[in-house]
Simulated assay, not measured.
Amino acid sequence: MHTLDAAADLAVTDPVAAIDSLPWLSAALAEDRAAGRFAAWGHSTVIDENVGAAVLPRALFDELHRRAGLAATWPIGNAGVLHVYGYLLSTTPTPYGLKRERWVTSDLERACGLEAGAFTPWAGAQTLLSRAAAAASALLARPDALTEQAEGRTARIALGAPLPEGTAALAYAVDGLLITMFPVADPSALRADLGAPRLRWNAA
């Protein structure tokens, strides 16, 4: 974790060096690019709806997409690049903590019914993007997932079975493309607060 903190701080001024300081990250970006895995993800804005500001510096946004082999025009980029790898290097506080916490704490993996360490970014035989996509796709396949029409788009919201303390895993897709996944402390409250259909969770 200390190494990830240091890389996140460095990414503010030197994103190339920051990514290179994490060999597993540079390798994952290259592997996912070669395998075409970013194509399963939709578009997202780097401007977070909760804080009203960018959660990544523009230079880091550009470097991550360059390594992923994707064209992106600030502030709209690939949701897999941003929500999986970009969030690991975000230092912007949000009401729910740092964006990376979903990947480096146990809440999300436990809520997905996975073993401890299932989402540890630097561990495992598969890249974090691959593991996240598999878990999100499984959630979105649930028969109780909600489908809504918003801005001419078809979105799907899925919540997994809650843990004993109430936390559930959420996955979100738009037009069949993955956008994000994260743990929800109070899924009942989230359902009650959804309101009118709209694009959610920074989808673009």
Rank of each mutant, 00 (worst) to 15 (best):
A18Q: 02
A161P: 11
T94V: 00
A79R: 01
P57L: 07
H2G: 08
F119H: 00
R66F: 00
A72S: 06
A7G: 04
A150K: 02
S21K: 04
L129M: 06
T94D: 12
L140F: 02
T13N: 13
R200N: 00
L89I: 09
P143D: 10
R102I: 12
E148T: 01
W122S: 15
V51S: 13
A111E: 06
S137G: 13
R33W: 01
A7R: 06
P183G: 00
G69N: 01
T147C: 11
D14F: 06
I157W: 10
A161I: 08
H2F: 11
L159D: 09
A39Q: 08
G97L: 06
H83G: 07
R153W: 04
V104Q: 02
P95W: 01
V184A: 00
L108R: 09
A125T: 14
A185F: 11
A135L: 00
W24Q: 05
G113W: 04
G160V: 05
G160T: 03
L89V: 01
T73W: 08
D20Q: 12
V55Y: 13
A17Q: 03
I47F: 02
A192F: 02
A196N: 10
N78A: 09
A53L: 13
V104G: 03
A71G: 14
Q149H: 13
I76Q: 14
T3Y: 09
A189Y: 06
R131K: 09
A150G: 03
E115F: 06
W74R: 07
M1Q: 13
A72H: 04
V46C: 08
